[in-house]
Design a protein around this nucleic acid. Structure first.
Lengths: 200, 200, 200, 200
DNA sequence: GATGAATGAGTGTTCATTCAT
DNA sequence: GATGAATGAACACTCATTCAT
């Protein structure tokens, strides 16, 4: 039966250590040698599993994108009552903390990489697209059921995601300002307010 | 006595090329050699003016921060009529495009650097602090004059900046979605709406 | 499992070439690049085996010290007759030529390094200590058997080593002055004379 | 009358700082930049006064050699009584501490340089030659007056200088062993002993 | 599968030096 | 006299990578 491949063990293991090194030393400091050292393994082994560093970076971004998209915005369709369902959405949105899943620094490092690398960019665009379209559906549904008042769900969802993204970013710049609970309440009320107004 | 220093000319010149290289090759790709090559000077000349690369990075960040803070939010006190003044604020805010002044990628690269380097972080925090406090004053002023209704101007300004930051970021992920004009109108109406509501 | 290490071969090989370059170009001229060039290998290979240049220098000094201490003053205890044994000692001492084992220039270069680096110094001190204590034992033994007359064997051995060291050094400054044979005879008679006198 | 040259002030000043840097960082660590920094002066200035670094090294060696030869072995001819004169010589010799005048490390660094550079070597050889010939004259004089018994004053002076050189060196390797006074007495008695014996 | 040998390009930085001011 | 501009070679060292074992 031959030797069993360890790739599906080793590859995630490598990516995980890659990730850790980026957190501590930044993208520019994350060399194969350092990752290998941290894994107490020979640098060549990383090349063995990823051929090139470029492939490793790709792997990392895929992993990050996958993590994100799996975690962001669950399926709300189990809830039948439209009002309750919208409440669920609001609840989830206001709790959304980007970096619950992926480290802030790593995320932005990968993101800026996407500004040069079209393939990486494509993945990020797809990610936000997925997120936006899911949210859009919920907004449409709620709107159709008279819970909120939105003519342009697309713009609405885009703006809400912007707000969340920004709030998440801002959290790192002025961390002491408010508690998670305050933040949650505030986002909730803002989202409610603007979706009930005639902004969209 | 002695030769005249060209530091005043050379240092900005170097930083500017540094900046350009980051845009094209990312922070990790911006080596002294590449910058020098682009300037058609010897790499050691950069060291002559900036002792270490670290100092060069510091210089760049200072430059970026300075550019930002000089441009962001002008003085509105010339306008005497409170309503008009608030209109001005709204106008400026809704037009705010972070990357009008500093390249998006460079900005986020420097920002992530701040997540590891306390001194850099300090500068970013100070930048946003300045921005927030200026906006806060305008919110307070408008509120006192009954134009908007805000009990907590700090939270309000924080949230508005978050929204702007996020919208700016989001622009890069879904660029095709709306025109600058649409964006402007939308932000304006959202800000107006939430500051008139009882969110804050 | 894995490839066989060549460190046992490569490390001494590197040190040997390091040594040669020092002889020709001095300590300050012995760069990794030059050593590598002489070995017809890539400079980074030296780093592969010695991590840093500092470690290479350490390796060299260890090697030199080891060479010295292995060669200096053999075991005289095979000879049972005290008079004959002392003759043996005299014979060996008078023939001692420091640089039979280690190049004069390299030795002094390493030595001066020890004047700044405590660890290097420690090794040199230990070397001379070993040498002195061995000689002391022989002096004591000869003295107890009435061949020489020494109350303070420590001082005696210290002074004899000084004389040998100095004679060795001086040889380079006035090389033409006398033959090795003359030198040998002279040292022998001086050592004999002072150990029989009441100097010590 | 023109501007007065500052060369005879600057050159010694530079050499003196060169010397200091060698002591602290070794010959290989003594760069023009470091010396200039220590002098709080521009590196170019050192080149201005010495054209090349090589010339600076030459200057340093000349300075060291000059310092030495001026200090070593004064003129004893003022003393008329041969016995007293020899006592003076013994006194001076036994007190001779090479590094009273020139730092030990600097001296050996320059010396090893002489092992490669013929011109430097020539200077060192001349130094020791002077020293040896002066001592030889004293030995001859004392011998002719029956104070000591030496047939070959050249060999005798060579050996004594060797002993002094070695003792001086050894002092650094085993510094704790004896006091300066003990050392002095010992050297004196050894020199006396061997010059009265029939070694030479 | 995993290690180590070996490479060559590249890193930031220091070096001595020349020249203009 | 003294400084600073500028260079180009060299420095120790790190990088990703290939290949043999």
């Amino acid at each position: 039966m031959g030797r069993k491949s360890k790739a599906n063990v080793r590859r995630p293991e490598i990516l995980s250590h890659f990730y850790d090194v980026i957190i501590e030393e930044g993208f520019e400091g994350a060399s194969i040698a350092k990752i290998a050292k941290r894994m107490k393994v020979n640098p060549s082994l990383l090349i063995h599993y990823f051929s090139t560093k470029e492939a490793m970076v790709s792997g990392l971004i895929e992993y990050i994108i996958a993590t994100y998209s799996n975690q962001l915005l669950p399926d709300f369709s189990r809830e039948n009552d439209p009002a309750m369902r919208w409440e669920d959405v609001l609840e989830v949105i206001s709790r959304l903390n980007w970096d619950m899943f992926v480290n802030h620094a790593v995320y932005y490092n990968c993101y800026t990489l996407g500004l040069r690398d079209p393939e990486v960019r494509r993945q990020f665009v797809a990610l936000y697209e997925t997120l936006a379209s899911r949210l859009m559906l919920e907004i449409e549904f709620a709107s159709q059921n008279g819970i909120i008042s939105v003519r342009d769900p697309q713009k609405a969802s885009d703006m809400i995601i912007s707000l969340l993204e920004g709030a998440n970013f801002y959290q790192y710049v002025r961390p002491q300002e408010w508690t998670l609970e305050q933040r949650r309440e505030l986002i909730r009320s803002i989202v409610s307010t603007i979706l009930k107004s005639d902004c969209f």
